[in-house]
């Protein structure tokens, strides 16, 4: 079957063939990262900014060269920021280094769950939009928070499935699905907490526009194979959503026609009432 070509993921008027975004952290080696990128074929790669560590003489140069060679669009993040001010400063530094106005906005409110700070993320989003950024905020599935982010000018939202790095999959499916229904025109990317391809497939079946993964791939025993599995799952879920799933029913319905069934009297040879 040929790939659909008219189903691009559109984020801030940029079109991407893939609906999968991939993080670049926690791989055991650069070659694993590169091969996982190849296998996942992602729309974008997420990156961060960090101080040069004392043991490093490279200052991220080889990492950055490696990523540039993949020729994938870059989505910088503000990971680790705990205040709106830190996030805005980090975003400004990222725009200068990575030459993109796209920013994955993270403002962490709790160090145990790494839950987004809803107040800080809205404050930062307002300021970043004012400064011309295209903001993709990491948020919860809370509808009021999402409304505030849309009001702030965010054209994409990235609700969590579960706390970062847990791999638990969607912890609040009902709220996620309600968010999808309440914001039908906003691209929604499920970010954080996805652990299995089935989780990714599930949220795509619900109509989410994409998933952002990192640990689920990088900490798999075989990250390259897992990257490929996720790519297939995201595609399968997206296709299922577009195909329009059947309606779930309470009662059994025979799929084989009743008409012509043997061992019945002639009078029962008529269409089933159901």
């Amino acid at each position: 079957m040929e790939e659909q070509t008219n189903d691009d993921l559109t984020l801030y008027e940029q079109r991407f063939r893939s609906h999968l975004l991939l993080g670049t952290a926690r791989y055991d080696s650069p070659s694993l990262l590169v091969n996982a990128i190849r296998a996942a074929d992602p729309a974008m790669l997420t990156v961060s900014l960090r101080r040069q560590t004392s043991g490093s003489t490279d200052a991220g140069q080889s990492f950055w060269s490696l990523l540039r060679e993949t020729r994938r669009p870059i989505l910088p993040n503000t990971a680790g920021c705990h205040t709106a001010r830190e996030a805005v400063t980090t975003a400004c530094m990222a725009r200068e280094v990575f030459q993109t106005s796209l920013i994955k906005l993270e403002v962490i409110g709790d160090d145990v769950t790494l839950q987004p700070d809803p107040f800080g993320v809205v404050e930062a989003a307002i300021e970043l939009v004012r400064r011309g950024f295209q903001v993709l905020p990491y948020c919860t599935e809370d509808w009021v928070l999402c409304q505030r982010l849309i009001d702030a000018g965010c054209e994409v939202l990235m609700p969590w499935a579960a706390p970062i790095g847990t791999g638990q999959g969607p912890r609040n499916p009902r709220a996620l699905r309600e968010l999808r229904e309440r914001a039908p025109q906003i691209p929604l990317i499920v970010d954080a907490g996805i652990g299995l391809p089935s989780h990714a497939c599930q949220v795509m079946e619900w109509g989410f526009d994409g998933v952002l993964l990192n640990t689920a791939v990088s900490r798999a025993l075989d990250p390259v194979r897992m990257a490929s599995a996720f790519a297939s799952a995201v595609t399968a879920g997206r296709r299922a959503f577009l195909a329009g799933p059947m309606i779930v029913r309470e009662m059994a319905v025979s799929s084989t026609p009743e008409i012509g069934r043997p061992f019945t009297s002639a009078s029962s040879d008529r269409p089933s009432p159901r």
């Binding site: 993080g23 670049t24 952290a25 926690r26 791989y27 990262l33 997420t46 990156v47 961060s48 900014l49 960090r50 101080r51 040069q52 200052a59 991220g60 140069q61 990492f63 950055w64 990523l67 910088p76 993040n77 990971a79 001010r85 830190e86 805005v88 400063t89 980090t90 400004c92 530094m93 200068e96 280094v97 990575f98 970062i164 790095g165 952002l212 990192n214 640990t215």
Partner: peptide, 29 residues
């Protein structure tokens, strides 16, 4: 904690106790 654009390095005065952060591309999720 405030971004300094590259074009303003020459005119950006620094003072005793200022905190300077220099960051580089790094892996991220």
């Amino acid at each position: 904690d405030e971004f300094v654009p590259r074009a303003t390095y020459d005119t950006c005065d620094i003072h005793q106790g200022d905190r300077i952060d220099i960051v580089h591309p790094a892996a991220g999720g």
